[in-house]
């Protein structure tokens, strides 16, 4: 069963049996999201499970099913903030404060070399920037969904994304200058894609 169908069926009938197929798609997604935010893998697993428990319990309260993924990642962010509140015992958690700790992990806890290239780029972004890149380019959320997940207006999503695109361009270019071979390979790939397109 595909993810879209699993989601449709679960939202129609939010039972334990209906949740199992969807769980198989959402759990790896959430786990990946947390890894890309710099959390260690065990913690990523625990938080992903917490999020999915909430999703199961509150699915009936979801008002806009078309924004399901925005809602899912809104819960995911809340759970991450709740974890940091418990850990730091601060009333208000600023994601920026977590930057150093999370960034250090991002560059050390990745399974594959190619995956770590992306993680290295993300490690040079602020946590809020990292989230938006992850939601847009990896989980491929719509702007409406990202706005819901981050609790900001769509216009802010777009301008924030533009800033992050510029920052990433500088990061990637910097990397390319250090590695001319990679640059040539990429240009070749882009050329092939353009020819196909």
């Amino acid at each position: 069963m595909g993810e879209k169908l699993a989601l449709k069926q679960f939202l129609h009938t939010p039972t334990e049996d209906g949740f199992r197929p969807l769980f198989g798609y959402l759990y790896p997604r959430l786990h990946r999201f947390y890894l890309l935010q710099g959390l260690e893998t065990m913690l990523a697993e625990d938080l992903a499970q917490e999020v999915l428990l909430i999703v199961y319990r509150k699915a009936a309260e979801l008002r806009q099913p078309e924004l399901f993924y925005g809602w899912l990642f809104q819960i995911a962010r809340h759970e991450m903030a709740r974890y940091w509140r418990r850990k730091t015992k601060l009333e208000l958690v600023s994601f920026e404060l977590l930057s150093a700790e999370l960034t250090a992990r991002l560059t050390t806890e990745l399974p594959l070399a190619e995956q770590s290239r992306l993680a290295n780029w993300l490690a040079q972004l602020e946590p809020v920037e990292r989230e938006i890149v992850s939601l847009r380019f990896i989980d491929e959320l719509s702007y409406d969904e990202i706005a819901l997940a981050l609790a900001i207006p769509i216009g802010t999503v777009k301008s924030r994304l533009f800033h992050v695109r510029k920052k990433l361009a500088a990061i990637i270019e910097g990397e390319f200058h250090r590695d001319r071979t990679t640059l040539n390979q990429t240009l070749g790939l882009l050329e092939k894609q353009r020819e196909k397109g």
Partner: peptide, 25 residues
């Protein structure tokens, strides 16, 4: 700027593909 942003986006999408299609779990 457009050239640099498009180049970066191409790279970002390429690298994102690894994360999307390589199961970590």
């Amino acid at each position: 700027l457009r050239r640099r942003l498009r180049l970066a986006e191409g790279q970002l999408r390429l690298q994102s593909g690894y994360w999307q299609h390589t199961p970590v779990l």
